[in-house]
Every structure is written in structure tokens, then in C-alpha cells.
Design a protein around this nucleic acid. Structure first.
Lengths: 203, 203
DNA sequence: CCGTTTCTTGACCAAACGGTCAGCTTCACG
DNA sequence: CGTGAAGCTGACCGTTTGGTCAAGAAACGG
């Protein structure tokens, strides 16, 4: 709960959270074991529990860290900028996050899939407000005729769905497309750019 | 492996698979316990293992059943029909499946999220072929000018992503939108109809 | 009605799990 | 260099889990 103090605490807590991200995102909460996290972090299991009081405490701390990071780019949308370019930039940013932080994406997906038992407060609070505020901006853009009219909430969902899909279902996509990860993301970036531009541009 | 023979076998195997769908989709493979499945199916744990040799065997059988069901609507796309209407119908069908079979969707999502350890063969085989065949149909439509040009594989991914999102991330969407499930899916249907029509229509 | 197959279960097992603890080692600092 | 706090670990514990087994109950065929 408190901030780390000594260098050792800082280093080990970081190592634990890094290991936990690896294991939780790959195995889910119940599938993850303290032994696996400890091994990943290069520590003994009792030493994990010296820094965090329980498996749940590790998971909670990790989720808080990741959730903030995950929602950040939405606040970067400039209500004063060009609507379509702003949204397309948001799409590209989210896609880059799927490429560069797939574990964070899967951690989040795992949590929501299981019914978000640990972050339901956060969803009904911060997340809901953030989304409603952004949806209102989109709505204003549509009213001004700068964006094709559509339900702004579902537009946000469609952005999340299409971009996070490349991280969460990466195995499936790789199995179907083959090629290198780099190529797949380059294609995806081009596709989503065109696709959303077409869908968003008013006639 | 063999088909069920007696009525008792039929009934109990069905009950087990129904219980397994409930538990595996909600808890993931490792989070699911034989006790929970047995309770859901109304059987004792040893009796489960009389009909299936292991937890993995239950999961495998379930995945095979669901995978066929899950991919079926793609084969219903008529290469001779109107391109945009065919794709929009596919989108609506997939959305209805998210509404009516959310557990099947989550089961599949859980599996792929964990790296699809049990169905990687199926992905690289049937699924890949099915998708490639369908992508070729889309490509022909685009070449004929009946569909805006875009990468057909990524188009398929975007359809899967946007529709399955409503099942897999249902908790999140409910937390943000509120209202009733019926209303949310009605909105989603209208949104996706407009959205994909806009993106697919050539200029 | 009887014998045989199918079905069902309580009791049990070994392994894996989250977590504890006493005591050892290392570090910071005067 | 001494001492108290911080860091660390092997051994251990109770519970849960997937799976087994011997033996009883129900269903079936003649």
C-alpha cells in the first residue's frame, strides 16, 4: 500500500510485479501459482509473501497499475483537434499498445472474462465516467457534422474490440495469417486506418 | 470418443457437457474443478470420471462440440448473394450468437487467451482453411467492385472482434452502459449494421 | 427370477497449492 | 565494528484438487 522505500524493496517489488504480469496474463488468476511468479521474479516463495501479503494482494496491485496505464490514451484525445484524425490516432495508439503490451491486454481480458471480480468498482466508477465524458465529445463532433452519426459508446467499444483483438487472440491470428508479428501489425494498422476512416467520414 | 449408446449414457454425458460449459466458461480451464462440474451436472465426481477419463477429456470433447457450432455461420455466407447484405447478415448472426450463447463465446475466448493449448491443431487446420476460403470470396467481391477494397482477412477479424466483444466483455459493457441486456444488444445490432455498411460500401 | 452388465458412490490417495514461522543472513548506520 | 532492523529461506501445515478403487445398486437380457 505504501510506496516502496529502500532500493531493495523497489527492486524486488518491481520484479514481483513483472513476474506476476507474465504469469497472470498467461494463466489467469487461478491458473497462476505463487511458485511460478516467484520463479519468474527470481525469488523464493516465502520472500514473495514478505513483500505482498497474499496472491490476491499481488494481483490487486498489478491490476491497479495496469488499469491506469490502459486507460491513459483515451484522455489524450483532444476535443479541440480534428475529429477523424483524433479518433484514428486513438485507434493507432490502442493498436500499438496491443503490439507492445500484449500481456497487459491479456491480463485485463482475463479479468473481465471472469466477470471482473476484482475491479467491478473501478469499472462502474472511473471507467464509466471516462467513457461517458469521451462519448459526449464524440456526440458533439457528430452534432457538428464532422463525424458520421452513430452511437458514440458503441463506437468506443468497436475501437477497443478491434485493437485489443490483436493482442488477446494473437495465437488465433498467427495461426491463420502466419507471417511475422511485425507484418501482421503493419497490415492491421493499414486496415484499421482505412476501415475506421470509411466508417467515420460523413457523406 | 464413440457415440453414446444407452439412454443413460446420452443423458449423463449431455448433463456433464452442459455443466462443463457453465463452469469452464466462467472459470477457465484451471479455475474449473471437477467438483463444480459434477455439482452443476447433478452427478458425483467419480461418476463424472466414469463417463470421461479426465478433466482434459471433458474439456476436449466440449471444445470440439463448440468449435463446430461456432464456425458454422461462416459457411452460410452465400458467394452468389449480394456481398454487402451477405456480410451484414453474417455480422448480425455472430452478434446473435454472442447474445444467445455467451458461454460458448467465453469458453472459446478463454482457450485462445491461454494460447489455445488444446486446439492449436484445429486452428492451423480447419479454421485456417475456412477463413482463407471465405477471404477469397471477399476478395472476389472487392475485385468486382461490389465491396470497398480492404484486406479480407482483417475484415473477418474485425467482425469477430466487434461481435464477440459483446459476449466476452459483457461485464464491462454492462458496467458502462447499464440498461437491460435486451436494449444493449438492440443498440449494438443497429450500430454494427450502420458501421459495417458504411465501411464496406464502395464509393 | 436370475445372472450379467452397467451405473453409482464413499472412502481414499498423492500431488499441488497458498500461506506460516522460526531462525539465519545481510545491510544500514552511528 | 557493533547492533538493530530489514531481508531471506528451508521446513512445514492445512486444504484443495484430479484421480482411483472396491463394492454396492440399478438396469437389462434371457
Amino acid at each position: 500500500m505504501d510506496k516502496p522505500r529502500t532500493r531493495i524493496q523497489q527492486k524486488n517489488q518491481d520484479a514481483i510485479l513483472a513476474g506476476a504480469l507474465e504469469v497472470f496474463s498467461a494463466e489467469g488468476f487461478k491458473g497462476a501459482t505463487l511458485d511460478a511468479i516467484a520463479a519468474e521474479a527470481g525469488l523464493s516463495k516465502p520472500n514473495l509473501l514478505y513483500y505482498f501479503s497474499s496472491k490476491e494482494a499481488i494481483h490487486r496491485t498489478l491490476m491497479e497499475t495496469v488499469l491506469d496505464l490502459w486507460l491513459a490514451p483515451m484522455t489524450a484525445i483532444d476535443a479541440g483537434g480534428d475529429p477523424i484524425e483524433q479518433i484514428l490516432t486513438y485507434v493507432q495508439t490502442k493498436l500499438e499498445m496491443s503490439r507492445d503490451m500484449p500481456r497487459e491486454s491479456r491480463l485485463f481480458a482475463n479479468e473481465v472474462l471472469q466477470g471482473a471480480p476484482h475491479i467491478s468498482d473501478e469499472i462502474e466508477g472511473n471507467l464509466k465516467n471516462l467513457v461517458n465524458r469521451q462519448a459526449a465529445v464524440f456526440q458533439r463532433w457528430m452534432d457538428a457534422g464532422a463525424l458520421a452519426p452513430m452511437d458514440p459508446h458503441h463506437l468506443i467499444f468497436s475501437i477497443w474490440a478491434t485493437t485489443q483483438h490483436y493482442a488477446d487472440f494473437a495465437v488465433q491470428i498467427e495461426g491463420i495469417l502466419g507471417r511475422t508479428e511485425e507484418q501482421r501489425f503493419t497490415e492491421a494498422a493499414a486496415f484499421l486506418e482505412d476501415f475506421f476512416r470509411r466508417a467515420l467520414t460523413p457523406r
